[in-house]
Design a protein around this nucleic acid. Structure first.
Lengths: 202, 202
DNA sequence: CGTACTTTTGAATCGCATCAAATCTGGTGG
DNA sequence: CCACCAGATTTGATGCGATTCAAAAGTACG
């Protein structure tokens, strides 16, 4: 599973200082693999180059709740100083993922002001993204959530589906049936287009 | 409204480097005042010592959506490097609030590694808090959201209400009627206690 | 004392969850 | 190549719970 370092993603390369790159480990993950589980001690920061990973927590009734649906970027930034992961990371599409040892990141953050500046900027973006997700989940109707999602996460209202509507439904906090029906009715009304892999608002 | 610097909150003092403290401006705000509005250029970072501030965005139907209900701590950390605020900050209870110039914070972050370390830790906590809020908003029933809220935001299941159930309803993403009914029925079932200003799970 | 707001209860409606089942899909192994 | 299986997709029917609209009662404040 863990392959030797080959080439790291451009976005990651721009974030990390050169000294950290030699510690990066890139690997391919298959659908169904788990990056980490809740309760484990964080050893690596993970960065997704391609594919899709769901951060999930188990609800009390056993139903998993999607905290984040990541397709690119760092996914465990909040665990940088944590003793334990607070969620599971499940790979749901074949993915290219790079790991960087947490210890190395922390020491680099202490000694490299430019790096910690970039890190703060990254965390700021994450905070904003999460605020938008809260805003989205505060909407009551499925079509409102979908529109909000396409407006905020899409490129000009277009969004690549990846692993299908089912995992999107989880991120929107609705059942997949509700989302299927919503997409179908919006397509019929002409408010939405669906080209196989892409969703687009009209 | 803006008073001269008197005394800053202990939590803020622990976060900020000494050099920044002279730039702090503490002030009292009354219910109904607005700290900042969406679209404005951030000039100050705000820190709440006491009281309550709601971060809100206007939905497309004109209904305000509560992004955050802050009663202590920094509230505009994500706007540190932003050109514009992306939400309104409305004071809903008489509050003591300290402002620090954004420019000063940014320059201190660049020159003081220990400070940027503390800042990163603060952002990490915020990311986790927001992930929990997303998890909460993914629950479908009002009583589940309330329980989750008391478990994660309360002290041993106890939470001080402050400005009443109505603003809590906004943070939980439900109507105030639904929350009133939920609290009443849980009290009748004996799952919840309500001592005037405090909510407590049994 | 009046105004504005919160709190509370009621009734009607609507949207989504839930349960169920059929179809479609890609992938596996014989 | 086909049978088969697991999962995604889709449609249907039903019920519950929250929204919505409405209105009354309580409360703080000038």
């Amino acid at each position: 599973m863990a392959l030797p370092f080959t080439q790291i993603h451009q976005e990651l390369a721009a974030l990390l200082p050169a000294a950290l790159r030699e510690y990066c480990v890139s690997a391919s993950y298959a659908r169904g693999e788990r990056l980490f589980s809740a309760g484990e001690k964080p050893k690596y920061m993970f960065f997704i180059s391609s594919g899709e990973v769901l951060l999930e927590r188990m609800g009390m009734q056993g139903a998993p709740i999607v905290l984040q649906r990541a397709r690119s970027g760092i996914i465990s930034e909040a665990s940088l100083r944590s003793e334990r992961y607070h969620c599971h990371a499940n790979v749901v599409l074949p993915s290219e993922i790079t790991g960087v040892p947490v210890v190395k990141v922390n020491s680099a953050l202490s000694s490299d002001p430019a790096f910690s500046n970039r890190w703060i900027a990254m965390l700021n973006r994450e905070v904003k993204r999460l605020r938008l997700q809260c805003e989205r989940l505060s909407l009551h109707r499925v079509d409102d959530r979908l529109m909000h999602f396409l407006e905020t996460e899409g490129q000009q209202g277009t969004y690549p589906l990846g692993s299908g509507l089912k995992s999107l439904a989880g991120e929107l906090g609705v059942t997949h049936e509700a989302l299927y029906r919503c997409v179908a009715s919006m397509e019929k009304k002409g408010t939405l287009q669906r080209d196989g892999e892409h969703l687009k608002m009209i």
